[in-house]
């Protein structure tokens, strides 16, 4: 069985005044139908750019330097707007980060859901559903994401809803086309802690009942742990470690992953700063040679500055890009 989504050696650069920023630097990832993949890393590591690039809504001036993104075996990296029709929203959908800015403030929830429903019907070659039909379907979707009184919510404007409700609306919008692949970009980051838990629970229920294939982007290891079966750790445009979520979290191989996990808040509420990871992420315009992590790495040697480590692992399911990883 071929993968639903396969990213092969993908390089992306964004031109800036100081030169091109190499934002994605040879990404290799594959996702089978029904899998849930988490992508975790600090802000600025390229995870959001990667998520948007999958959907063809990445940065305007970004240039693909190399590599492919295969969805259902077809390269989607340079599709025209016309070819995207029938994929966006219908086969691949996205849940966005900030529920305030990603809803149009001037239209009611019902209008925005209804337009998406109509667009999906057209993409699948059906007649445009009537007003009443769109409304019924929209209300069903709102009900599905756990909003009470969906009929009333339809007539609300975004600013009249709470953050958690808006996030549920965004999830309903993403589900409205019955997508095969769902990309969730930091779906809980902008929410209060209590609401985060509710939204995570909702997402987990939806994944289970609808059998969704999910890519979830987050810097929140807890959210990743709660929702995904597999995780990829990104650092400065590279995937540095990939494996089953439980194993990676329990026994991280890459020094960066180890630092990231060590920085997790403890149960008692004390937050240890990124103790294992001193310094900040490097410039993507002029990245360090060899392993991009070596200037911050406690195990760095001359080899790390000279040569970029390849992904390797004793178990093909859990691989790491580090010259000095303890694979035993």
């Amino acid at each position: 069985m071929s993968a639903l989504l396969a990213i092969e050696d993908y390089h992306l650069a964004i031109p800036t005044f100081d030169g091109p920023a190499r934002v994605l630097n040879g990404i290799d990832l594959a996702l089978e139908e029904g899998e849930t993949l988490g992508i975790v890393g600090e802000s600025g590591c390229g995870k959001t750019v990667l998520a948007r690039t999958i959907l063809g809504i990445g940065p305007d001036r970004a240039e693909r330097k190399q590599g492919r993104i295969l969805f259902e075996g077809r390269d989607v990296a340079d599709l025209s707007a016309r070819d995207w029709r029938g994929i966006r929203g219908v086969k691949i959908a996205m849940i966005f980060q900030d529920p305030m800015t990603y809803l149009n403030p001037l239209f009611t929830i019902g209008r925005q859901l209804g337009d998406a429903i109509a667009a999906h019907a057209r993409a699948e070659g059906q007649a445009r559903p009537g007003r009443a039909a769109r409304r019924v379907r929209a209300a069903t979707l709102l009900d599905q994401v756990g909003l009470r009184e969906p009929e009333r919510v339809l007539d609300y404007y975004p600013h009249q809803l709470s953050g958690g409700m808006r996030q549920r609306v965004l999830i309903a919008l993403a589900l409205s086309g019955k997508p095969r692949l769902l990309i969730a970009d930091e779906p809980t980051t902008a929410l209060d802690v209590t609401v985060q838990a509710q939204v995570l629970r909702l997402l987990r229920d939806l994944v289970e009942t609808l059998g969704l294939t999910v890519v979830m982007i987050s810097h929140d290891v807890g959210a990743i742990a709660a929702l995904t079966g597999r995780v990829a750790v990104m650092y400065a445009g590279n995937v540095v470690e990939e494996g089953p979520t439980a194993r990676v979290l329990a026994r991280p191989l890459h020094p960066y992953t180890q630092g990231l996990l060590a920085a997790l808040p403890e149960i008692d509420g004390a937050i240890r700063r990124l103790s294992g990871v001193p310094g900040t992420i490097p410039s993507l315009i002029d990245p360090p040679p060899g392993c991009r992590f070596h200037p911050r790495c406690p195990r760095a040697t001359a080899l790390c500055a000279a040569e970029r480590p390849a992904m390797r692992g004793a178990d093909p399911a859990h691989r790491v890009a580090c010259h000095h990883a303890d694979l035993a």
Partner: peptide, 27 residues
């Protein structure tokens, strides 16, 4: 046209004409 909600409208698969003439223009 660069606003988050227009990016979202593209991601939801809305037709380009509708995005421009309704969603972006109103704002």
């Amino acid at each position: 046209l660069q606003a988050d909600h227009v990016v979202a409208a593209r991601a939801h698969g809305l037709a380009p004409f509708r995005i421009v003439a309704v969603y972006a223009l109103r704002n």
